[in-house]
Amino acid sequence: MPDLDARAERALVTEWRDLLARHAATACALDRELNDRHGLGMSEFEVLERLAESVGGGCAQLRVQELAGAVHLSQSALSRLIGRLEKDGLVERAMCDADRRGIFVSLTPAGRSRYDEARPTQREVLARTLTPLPADIG
């Protein structure tokens, strides 16, 4: 990779910091509003959404390994999160018949309902925090 001149390097670092700030603001807004309105954290919502999107053959389920990569959580963090969702009746875990080492996570009817209720809130926050601001005129 070629060396960047000082101006290009500053611009790159500024862009990186802006991206981090935008991510943090969006994540905080999602956590606050999803929790206040629906009792869900951002990561919990993301798991429910990935399961809702995985419907195949009428069953919304994914292997834990697939979920971990999709929601960018470690196996242990995801396992704890799934445990909380399971305790709340929003998901169920089951052993994979083809591979006893694999575990499937399935969306329950209550999980589908909570996801459907929370989805508009999540989309509202994303639209508010991620929509580009109009360029200053003048």
Rank of each mutant, 00 (worst) to 15 (best):
G39L: 11
P132A: 11
P109D: 13
P2F: 00
A77W: 01
A11M: 08
G89N: 09
S79H: 12
E124T: 10
R80A: 11
G58T: 11
L34K: 05
L130T: 08
L34Q: 06
P120T: 04
A6I: 04
S113I: 01
G83S: 10
V13N: 07
R112N: 05
L20T: 09
F45M: 15
E46S: 15
S43P: 01
D116H: 02
A127Q: 12
E117N: 08
L20K: 06
E44N: 04
I82M: 06
A135P: 05
H38E: 13
L4A: 06
L48H: 06
R119P: 03
R17P: 00
G58W: 11
V47F: 00
N35F: 11
S76A: 10
E117L: 13
V55M: 08
F104L: 14
G89K: 11
R7N: 08
E124K: 06
Q75K: 11
S43T: 08
G41W: 13
D5N: 15
R100F: 13
S43K: 10
E66Q: 15
M95W: 11
T108E: 02
A60K: 05
L126R: 15
A110L: 09
R17F: 09
R80S: 10
R128T: 15
F104A: 05
S106P: 02
A52C: 07
T14R: 14
L62N: 04
E86G: 12
F104R: 05
S74P: 03
E15A: 15
G138C: 03
S43C: 04
P120S: 03
R17D: 09
L81Y: 02
L67D: 01
D31L: 06
E15C: 07
V64R: 15
G138K: 00
R37I: 01
E15Q: 14
L126V: 05
G41T: 15
S106Y: 00
A8F: 02
V91H: 03
R7P: 00
